[in-house]
Design a protein around this nucleic acid. Sequence first.
DNA 1: CAGTGAGCGAGCTTCCGCTTGACTT
Length: 582
Amino acid sequence: MAKNLVIVESPAKAKTIEKFLGKDYTVKSSIGHIRDMPKKDMGIDIENNFQPSYVVSADKKKVVADLRKSVKTADQVYLATDEDREGEAIAWHLLETLNLPKDTPRIVFHEITKGAITEAITSPRTVDYQVVDAQQARRVIDRLVGFEISPVLWRKISGARSAGRVQSPVVRLVVEREREITKHTTQSIYKVKAELVNDNGEVVDVKLSKDFDSKDEAVVFTTALLDAKLSVSAIEKKPSKRSPKPPFITSTLQQEASQKLGFSVKQTMTLAQGLYREGSITYMRTDSFTLSETAIEAAGAVIEKTYGSDYHQVRRYKTKDAGAQEAHEAIRPTDLTRPEIYGLEDQAAKLYALIYKRTLASQMSDAKLQRTQIKTNISNRDETFVANGEILVFPGFLSVYDYLSSDDKLLPDLSQGDELTLVNFAARESFSRAKPRYTEASLVKKIEEMGIGRPSTFATMVSTVQDRNYVTKETREGVERAFQLIEINEGKVEQSEPIENAGAEKNKLFPTSVAYLLTDFLVKHFGDIVDYKFTANLETDFDTIANQGVVWQSVVKEFYGPFHAKIEAADDISREETHGMR
DNA sequence: CAGTGAGCGAGCTTCCGCTTGACTT
C-alpha cells in the first residue's frame, strides 16, 4: 500500500508523476485553488487589519473531501503545487484545510521529467509564508478594487457592470486605439514601382528611392522617365542571417495559432488542453522559454539524424520579462520523435504540428542569406531605382519553420554600367493607415508586454470584456475608395482612377459605447487603477513581501487609504455628469 | 368591463488567478 501522498495542482500532471514515482506513492491533485474569499461578500475585515475569510469553493468540496481521505491513510504528505506565487498559496490553503503540520514537506520542480521529480523528493523545504503573504496581498487588493468600484458603476453608468485591475486597462486599450483611429487623417503619397529588363531579357523588379507627395510631382517624374537612360550604378552584396524564435509560451502560441491557423485565443487553449491531457505536449499555461535538458538532447538527436549536424545548434532561451514566474517549461511536444499526430481531430493535429516545428526549430542553426541591392541610375533625374534580392544560402531552421519559398527573391546577375530598359511602370497613390485594431491575440500580446494578467487568464480576459459588453469582436466589410494611378503605355503617360476596397476588418475588437463612458469615468476618478503601470508597480511591492519580509497588510493599507477616499468622492458625482461625458 | 401602461420598489450584478469538464449559446 502507498505510504506517501503527493499533491499537485493538475490531474494530468498527477497521472504522469505517479508513473515516475512508483508504487510507494499516490499522487492526487487539487485542481487549482481550493479556497477563496466568499463569492457574494467582500470577505475582508477591513477594520481588523484586512483579515480575509476563506471558504472552500463550492466546486472543490468533493476534491477536498477526497484529499482528506487520502491524507488519513498516508504516512507522509508532500505538497507539490507549482513554484510560483499562486502555487505557494495553494500549498498553504491545503495545509490549513487538511490540517497538515506546518513542517509538511513542500517540493518543487519546473519540468515533468523523472530526474527532476526524484531530485525534488530528496530536497524538500517547507511552505514559504512570505510568498504566501505576497499572494494574499495580490488577492485582497484585487477584491477591494473590483468590489468597491463595481457598485459605484452600477449607480453611475448604465450598462457598466464591472471594473478591475486587469479588465479595466484592457478596455482602456481598446477605447484608446479606436480613438486614435477615429482621429487619424489619411494622407496620400505616390509610390513608384517598375519592371526593368536587361539585354538578355532578364527582369528586375524595382521601386523608386523616393515617394512623391503629390500627383503633379509623380506625373512630372513619369514624363521625364520617357526620355531617360537607365543604367546600373551600384551593386552591393552582403551576407545576413536569421535566427529561430524561442519555443512557445502561452502568449506566443496564441499569437501564432491566430496568425497561421486562424484560431481564436480560446480555441487554441481548448485544443492545447486536450493535447496536454493526453500527454502529447507539456503544460500550456506558462511564461517560461526553458526547455528541459532531456528535451534539448532529444531535439538535437532528431535534428542530427534528419538534417545533419550542420543544422543543429543548442540554444537556451531566457525570458526578458521581469514579471515572469517560470514555474513550468516552455510548451513543447513530450516526444520529440513524433512530428505529427495521426487519427486526431484536424485542428488539434495542426496545433501540435505547429508546436513541434517551433520547438525543433529553436534548436537549429541560423539561416544564412545573401542580400543584394542593385541601384539603377536615371539619367535625367536625381532619384534611383532600387532592387532588393535575398537568396537563401543555407536554410538552417527555415527547413522546418517559417519557410516561404516566395521569400526567395532572386536577382539576375548584373554588372555596373549595364543598360536596362523600362518594360512596366506604375506610380500609384497609397494612403497612410491608422494603427490597426486589436485582435484577441494582439491584445494579449500587448497586455503581456505591460505585465498585466497571467498566462492562465489571457483567454478568459479577452472573453470577459466581451461578456461585459465593453468590447465586441466584429467583421466589417470595407468601403470602395478611388485612387490615382499613373502608368506608361506604348510610350505615353496614362492616368486613371481605379477603385479599391479599403478598411475591411476581420475579427477585430471594437469598443462599445459603454466602454467609452466607462473608460472616461475611470480615467477621471480612478486614474491610478487604469494606469498601465499600476500592476507593474504593485508587483514591486509584492516582491518586497516575498523577498524582504515586508508585512502584507502594510502594502494593502498603503493602497487602500487613498483608494477608498476616491470611492467616497466618486459617490458624490451626479449621474448627469457621467452621462454628459463623451 | 377588459386590457394597457405609467410608476414604483425590490433584488440583482462585481474582482483575479489556479484548475477542469459540464452545460448552454
